[in-house]
């Protein structure tokens, strides 16, 4: 019998006020997720919580029975960022999620998670990282079910697979802060404008289609990736963990829907219908089906079936 898929909550990708973060994780402690990824992964200027604060939240969540992983910055540019990274990587208590090869270098020889911004496109890469200590990897966002099938076939022993199944997709990182740019501010004097956009700042095309969400130096999809309907396929492929990426509103309802679907208390169609009401700009699932990431394939299939 296959193991039960575990549910994880990714790191908060946005800049929320300290109180909001603390109360968010108070709720997470009570929520039915199994694994929580903690820490700042986007911008080192977002400093309302320090490493010690994150460690305190980590202890609280572990006390509530959660597995905690400390997540790290994806784009490392300054020595100060490396310094913080070294401290996180040297911690004794928790696994660390590497989001850059610099973190992999520091984590060699100890168990770690390779996040979705580590480029793992083939079995050779998977095996090489397993050799240096990787115990879990997150499927790169642009890869499909077919690519995952191939990777699962050659997956080394003792390595778990995680898939990003719900949330706005992080698509790119830059030296430039696009939120500051939208306010005609230089990054060095950004006035922490990201605080005004708890789910990112919407970028639309000139013909009015909501297209992307600007999140500081990160660019996200404005559509919410939703792969709830693929849970059975993932179970069959031996996926160990599915990840929900936090949003400021309705996060705990999303977690609950996934939990009930995983536990078989709620059908996938009914769950998808409930989720559809919780997405700010609608769903997308194209990457999973080997198409443009912004496409929504499941819905169009349903329309064809006339249901």
């Amino acid at each position: 019998m296959s193991k039960m898929i575990r549910l994880s909550l990714g790191p908060i990708l946005y800049f929320w006020p300290r109180e909001q973060v603390l109360s968010f994780y108070e709720q997470v402690a009570e929520s039915p997720v199994d694994i929580v990824y903690l820490g700042e992964t986007v911008c080192s200027k977002r400093n309302l919580l320090r490493t010690d604060d994150w460690l305190e939240i980590a202890a609280r969540l572990r006390g509530a029975g959660k597995e905690v992983v400390l997540s790290t910055l994806a784009l490392l540019e300054a020595e100060s960022e490396l310094k913080r990274l070294r401290r996180i990587c040297a911690n004794e208590g928790y696994w660390v999620e590497a989001n850059d090869m610099g973190a992999v270098q520091l984590l060699q020889g100890r168990p770690f998670v390779a996040g979705h911004s580590i480029n793992i496109y083939n079995v050779k890469s998977l095996s090489l990282l397993a050799e240096v200590g990787m115990r879990r990897w997150v499927l790169p966002l642009e890869l499909s079910e077919r690519a995952l099938t191939d990777l699962q076939d050659g997956r080394p022993q003792g390595v778990e697979t995680e898939v990003f199944v719900y949330g706005r997709l992080p698509l790119a990182y830059s030296a430039r802060c696009f939120t500051a740019r939208a306010h005609h501010l230089p990054k060095d004097d950004c006035q922490y404008r990201c605080l005004d956009y708890p789910d990112g700042l919407t970028l639309a095309t000139q013909d009015g289609a909501r297209f992307l969400a600007l999140n500081g130096i990160q660019t996200q999809s404005s559509q919410t990736c939703n792969l709830l309907g693929q849970l059975n396929v993932m179970r069959r492929l031996g996926v160990d963990v599915v990840r929900i990426s936090p949003q400021s509103a309705n996060n705990h309802r999303v977690v609950e829907i996934f939990r009930r679907c995983i536990d078989g208390e709620l059908g996938l169609d009914a769950g998808s219908e409930e989720l559809a009401r919780l997405m700010p700009v609608g769903p997308c699932d194209g990457y999973w089906h080997g198409e443009a990431g912004m496409k929504q394939t499941a819905d169009s299939a349903r329309e064809l079936l006339g249901s």
Binding site: A74, E142, L171, Y173, S174, M294
Partner: peptide
Amino acid sequence: CVMVEGRCILSSYVTGQSPNT
């Protein structure tokens, strides 16, 4: 390139094809 190369999937988000793939 405005984005960090090798970790930008804007192109495949829109077309299904990226520099990496």
